Amino acid sequence: MNAATDKVMETSLMQRLKQETAFLHDRMEELMAQAEVFENKDNYRQFTLSQYYFQKDVEHLYEDSQVQQLIPDLDVRGRSEAALQDLADLGIKPALSTIATESVQYPQSLGWIYVSEGSTLGAAFLFKAAQEKFGYSADFAARNLAAYPEGRAIVWKRFKQTLDDANFSQQDQQLIIEGAMQGFHRFGELLSQLKELK
């Protein structure tokens, strides 16, 4: 075993995910800034539509029995229904969309879920902006940005612990990281195409 391999083995899966997707996370922040989500209500509507489509992609992965076995609290994690209600508040009915994760398998799927769960932390700032700019709330037009009933940090910490405690092999860890990269790319595509989303 060489020094590089030793270093990888000493690094937890969550640390690897954070480090190896950092450039994609930074790109998301750039795309969010470019999207000017809170510039006007039209931009916010289109952003909510992108949230809905991404959540549908992620929640498709919840149907896998291996995902269900590893993450028993999936029922509190999905946000597509909340996003759909927000879209109804905003006067939008999403067009039928294909699911981007149809061919994604376990454990790669966990990387997609990582991207979704991580986004709930950043959503705290988005939720505050939606309240301040437009008067939206957890009961109207900003449900999908609201915190989990237990709080964002608690649910995120539990998810991180679950992944680290699973002791995935290096091969499986790499698949999960690849899945996270796919998830970031997918959401990046949605953000890049906000104005065209239907």
Rank of each mutant, 00 (worst) to 15 (best):
A180N: 00
W156R: 07
I177M: 02
S119F: 02
G179P: 06
V58C: 00
D89V: 09
E20C: 06
L31T: 03
T48R: 04
Y148N: 08
A146D: 04
E36G: 06
A142H: 02
G78W: 01
A3G: 02
L175T: 10
Q68G: 03
I71H: 04
E20I: 07
L13C: 05
A95C: 13
K195M: 13
L90N: 05
L90Q: 02
Q46V: 07
P107K: 05
E30M: 15
Y62K: 01
K195R: 12
G151F: 06
K7S: 10
G91E: 03
A100E: 08
G118Q: 07
E189Y: 09
D26I: 12
A83F: 02
I177C: 08
D64F: 03
L145P: 00
D73P: 01
A4P: 05
L96H: 12
T120K: 12
D86E: 03
S116Q: 11
A100Y: 04
Y53R: 14
V8D: 08
N144P: 02
V104T: 11
K133S: 10
T162A: 11
N144I: 04
K195I: 13
N144K: 06
P149M: 10
S97Q: 12
G122V: 00
A142Q: 03
F125Q: 07
I176C: 07
M9K: 14
T11P: 06
T162C: 15
S103H: 12
Y44C: 09
M14T: 15
F38Q: 08
F54K: 05
N40E: 00
Y106I: 03
S137D: 10
S97T: 11
F187H: 11
R79W: 05
I92R: 07
D64A: 04
A147W: 02
A4F: 15
R143T: 07
G179F: 00
T101M: 04
F184K: 05
Q174T: 13
E132C: 04
Q85T: 12
N2L: 10
L191N: 01
E39W: 09
L84I: 05
G188S: 06
K7V: 11
G111C: 03
R143P: 07
F140T: 15
R27Y: 13
T162Q: 10
V67A: 03
A83L: 02
D165N: 11
P107D: 09
F47M: 15
D42A: 13
H60S: 07
